[in-house]
Every structure is written in structure tokens, then in C-alpha cells.
Computed example of a mutant assay.
Amino acid sequence: MTIDSFALQVWMRWRSLAASLNLATGNFNETCDACGQLLEHPQVATWVACSYPVIVVDEAQELAPPRLRIVSALAPHASVFVAADEFQCLDEDLDTAPFMAWFQGGNTTQLNHIHRTAVAGLLNAGANLRQLTAPGVGPGLTFNYHFPNDAPFRVGAAIAHSHGSVAVLFPPAGRAWANAMAQRLGQGLYSANYNIAPIRLILEPRASDEIAAVMAGFAEADVMSPVQIAERFAQLANPPSWIPHVTSAAFQGLNRQSKTLWSTAELRALVERKAASFRAYSGDRVRGVPLLNIHQAKNRQFDHVIILWPHGVPGGDELKARLLYNGITRARVSCKVFVRAQALLQEAPFTFNAA
């Protein structure tokens, strides 16, 4: 489950104590901070540890202070395993110093072996970007500029000639170019030198957007039976494909555990689990090549990755290096980066001015 859902679940269970302490809730930052304050009471943390004796937190470098408060309050009471890489934080406005200070005070193990790939060009580029030096081309990695009329043909050929899983990624500010590329490739590419059948690029909705849309019809104070949950879901205009899995799990809870009622917090946690499971394991996705922003692609891997790098990627040199790093490191076999303008290859993250 997400840490926000976990915070809401704890707050709902201990809302009487929260009220007596005048803990404010509203947006998720406030709810997470209130949860952290509740967990600083030993009886609350002990109760949580009984249900969750082992807690695993991934992508912990992006824990803002309200969420860090939750994890640090639980650490004395449960076995907490935290995975983090400060360089992979893609929020330039987030100060990672408080988390890193707390993190380094624990029993840390540095993971140095890369299992994803053994391709030299991909490995060297990742190592260079972490040092804010030019990634450079190499085996498995190319940087390309092509004239606007030629670029769709080159991208289409790169997709069509790849064997294995393929994904097309774009950084912030790249959605418009990605959408235009998807439309062009979907028409097929034919010329004297190319004969490429139509290619479907499927822009995946963000999981958080799907979950927010599904849960928008539920108030935080709602308590529902599985039948009521199914009725609410039936009213959704465009339900995600994983909704039947949520409904089935709710009825299984009734049949196997006599669970007759679900709070909104419990339902949100179930929705998040089923959405994540569907994305990870389902073979029922729409057929096509995934088109993802780089944030969405974190924790996913593909044999071949194509990155569309546009004008106007926001942030400083280091953030751009982190974005390109996260894109390249999704690839197991090859990564081809296509830039919108040749001049971009003379700017970060493709080259860096000496200090």
C-alpha cells in the first residue's frame, strides 16, 4: 500500500486519540503528519507493529518530512527495511537532507552489484551521470538528432527492429512531442527507404490518477458492505481493468473471513494493492508499446528503451541528469535517446560545463 493510505488507515483507527490531541487532517501531508504524531505514542506504534511486524519502504529517498515521521516513529517497534538512492529523487523541491541524516544513522548496506544489465554503454552512462559528467555513447546506448520529418521514421524503425520488450519514455515537458510521435507512428511509415506498419504507442495513465478517480466517490467516513462497494464501482464511467479484482477480493473477505464491512481507508489500501498487482502481472493490458513519462517508469525494466528528449525540460543540470539516468537505467539491452534539436546535445544532461 502507499504510505498515504497507511497513514489514513492508522488515523481512522485512532481518530479518537487524534481528536483529543487536536491533530489536523485534510490533505495527505496533514494526514501523514498526524499519523506520525500518533505513532510517536508507544501504544499506537506497538499496535501497528503487531499487524505489520515487518515494514518495507521502497523509493524512500522521496520521503518528505511528514512521511519520514511515520517511518522513523515505527523503526523502534518493527523491523523496518528501507531502500533508497538519493540520486533517484526526481523532485527538485524536496530537501533530502533530513531523510539522509536519519537513514545514515541506521544499519546500512550499500548494494553495488547491478543485476539489470551487463551492457557496458548503459553501465558507463549511468556511472557518469551520477558524477555529473557526460554520459557518452557506447555499446547499447546512442544519442540521436534527426530532422523533424525524418525523426518519426527513425523512432519507428528503432521500435520495429527491436526484439523483446520495448518502451518509449519522455521527461517533463515531453508529453506534447510524445503524443505527436504516437499519432504519427499510428498511421504507419512509408517512404522510399521505410515500410513500417502502424505502431500503437499506449500512453499509460498514472496509477495514482486511476486510484484517485476510483476513490473520488467515497467519503472518508464511509463504511460499506461488498455489495455497496460493487454498486459504487458500477457507477464509474470508465472503470480501470483491475476493478473486478477489487470487487472479487471484497466478496472473498466476506466469504472466507466474514468481513461484512469495509472502511474507506481499508478499501483504498485494497484498491492500491490490486492496481499495483494488475500493472505488475496482468497480461490483459491493451496491446501496444508503453508510452510513459520517466517518473512512471521507475522500478520497471524493458529490453529496449527509447527516450524522447524535448526542449524545455525543467530543472537544473543535476535534475536533468537524474531524469536521463532514470530513463537509461530502465533498459536491459539498449537505449536510444532522440533529441528534439541538435543543440540539446551540447547542454546538460548530455554534456556539462566544467565548474
Results as ranks from 00 to 15, higher is better:
V10F: 06
R13W: 07
W14F: 15
L17S: 11
A19P: 00
L23N: 02
N29E: 15
N29G: 14
G36A: 12
G36F: 01
P42V: 10
V44W: 04
T46N: 08
A49I: 07
P53L: 00
P66R: 07
P66H: 06
R67P: 08
R69P: 05
V71N: 05
F81Q: 03
E92I: 06
P98A: 08
A101Y: 09
G105F: 02
T108G: 02
L111H: 04
L111Y: 03
H115Q: 15
R116S: 05
T117I: 05
A118R: 14
L123F: 03
L123I: 12
L129C: 11
Q131Y: 03
A134L: 00
V137R: 14
G138Y: 02
G140V: 05
T142W: 07
Y145E: 08
Y145I: 02
Y145A: 08
P148M: 00
D150I: 15
P152Y: 01
F153H: 11
F153W: 03
V155Y: 03
A160D: 15
H161L: 14
H163P: 01
V166K: 04
P171T: 08
P171Q: 08
W177G: 09
A182F: 02
Q183Y: 08
R184I: 06
Q187H: 12
L189F: 02
L189W: 04
S191K: 08
A192N: 13
I202C: 06
S208R: 14
A216R: 12
A219W: 10
A219E: 14
V223F: 00
S225C: 00
P226E: 04
V227T: 13
R232I: 00
A237D: 15
A249C: 05
R256S: 12
S263C: 02
L270R: 01
E272I: 04
K274I: 01
A276N: 06
S277Y: 09
A280W: 03
Y281R: 12
S282K: 09
G283F: 03
D284K: 12
D284N: 12
D284E: 15
D284C: 11
G288F: 02
A297S: 15
K298H: 01
R300D: 12
V305Y: 05
H311Q: 14
L323F: 05
L323T: 02
L324P: 07
Y325T: 05
N326F: 00
I328C: 02
R332W: 09
R332V: 13
V333F: 09
K336W: 09
V337Q: 10
V337H: 03
R340I: 12
Q342N: 13
L344C: 09
